[in-house]
């Protein structure tokens, strides 16, 4: 895949009350936007476990979007503040693993803000297109000489084996 045709695969977690509804609204209002974000519905952005984010990266996601209600407007009062903190922690940690912090994005969209969500999806898709693919699964490709080395050990041991079977 050349970089010109690279289309990022992005997993989006959206809360039932605001951002998922905003995403539906973007649909109802036919606000066309980038098709890169695939949407998982959770009841609250507070349900988004950092494990989900890491899981998505490990399975080949190029970025992760978390969308919730605006701070202060959480359907569950203030649970999205926990999301703010978890996101802050992830953004701080991921660079140490060589992942650009731009690959995890937190956006707020109220149930009425279909356009804001659509724009955020476009922006993230564009930004990640520029960053290029992450391809995490390729990250622990075995060393080229590994299998050869294993074979040579077997061979070496067979040659050195002095006992008859």
């Amino acid at each position: 895949m050349s970089d010109e045709t690279f289309e990022p695969k992005i997993v989006g977690f959206m809360c039932n009350w605001c951002s998922y509804t905003a995403s539906d609204l973007a649909g109802t209002a036919r606000m066309k936007h980038a098709p890169n974000v695939r949407i998982i519905r959770v009841m609250c952005s507070g349900r988004v476990d950092p494990t989900f984010v890491l899981k998505a990266f490990s399975l080949g996601a190029d970025a992760v979007l978390i969308a919730g209600c605006h701070p202060g407007d959480c359907h569950y009062q203030n649970q999205n503040y926990k999301t703010i903190r978890r996101h802050a922690m992830l953004k701080y940690i991921l660079p140490q693993m060589g992942i650009e912090p731009e690959r995890i994005r937190l956006v707020w969209a109220s149930a009425a803000e279909g356009q804001i969500l659509a724009d955020a999806i476009d922006k993230l898709s564009e930004d990640v297109r520029k960053l290029g693919p992450l391809r995490w699964a390729d990250n622990w490709e075995e060393n080229g000489e590994r299998l050869e080395a294993l074979e040579s050990i077997v061979k070496e041991h067979e040659e050195a084996m002095e006992v008859q079977p």
């Binding site: 950092p50 701070p71 926990k82 703010i84 978890r86 940690i93």
Partner: peptide, 28 residues
Amino acid sequence: QDFGARLISALASVIDSEDPEEIDQIIK
């Protein structure tokens, strides 16, 4: 599945601030 993620999530949950800048500072 992921030990670190459990700590990240739990600790982030109980950081006593709602101000993004202060949160970043506490973590850093």
